[in-house]
């Protein structure tokens, strides 16, 4: 790949590659690195499907250029599970039917992962506000909210 040389950490692994200056982070992850778990729903920063975590903060990867991740730590949905073992948040999404078509799901998971790290015991209101920038057309959000509450309970009870 031609373009600007980049060094960053991706899902815990050090990476070194380059990216074209015009490529946004979502396209870079999907087509440059083959990490197609990150989805693109609107490409104008509203739907949240492309949310990934950069340096601990959830960001819209469609509004960020790939070259901006130089020296950063990037986390995507592919990094949440431990091998085949889903994280408590992922597992709770299944238990509480927090997903249907699965398209918004990676963005929802990354937004909520960041929320639960910052706010280990969120209220339902906290959760609804946190995901107010992630649009889901399938679930009506309730299963997602219930999943986040359940995951928070599991995470805080696990040392």
């Amino acid at each position: 790949m031609t373009g600007k040389h980049l060094t960053f950490t991706l899902n815990g692994e050090p990476r070194e590659t380059s990216a074209d200056p015009r490529t946004h982070l979502a396209d870079f992850l999907r087509y440059g690195l083959g990490l197609t778990g990150t989805h693109v729903g609107c490409e104008h920063g509203v739907c949240g499907a492309c949310t990934v975590i950069v340096d601990g903060v959830p960001v819209r990867s469609c509004l960020m250029l790939a070259v901006q991740i130089d020296c950063c730590t990037v986390e995507t949905v592919e990094g949440l599970a431990n091998g085949d073992e889903l994280s408590p948040l992922q597992q709770a999404f299944s238990t509480h039917h927090g997903l249907q078509c699965g398209f918004c799901t990676p963005g929802m998971l990354m937004t909520l992962e960041a929320l639960l790290r910052a706010t280990p015991s969120p209220t339902e209101h906290d959760i609804r506000m946190a995901i107010s920038g992630n649009i889901c057309r399938c679930t009506g959000y309730q299963g997602i909210v219930e999943a986040a509450l359940a995951a928070a309970a599991v995470r805080t009870s696990t040392p």
Binding site: L35, T36, G37, T38, H39, T76, V77, E78, L80, A81, D84, L86, Q90, F93, S94, L99, G102, F103, T105, P106, L109
Partner: peptide, 11 residues
């Protein structure tokens, strides 16, 4: 679910 949650959906 497991596939979709792990980012292994194939759209």
């Amino acid at each position: 679910d497991p596939r979709l949650l792990a980012g292994r959906g194939r759209y």
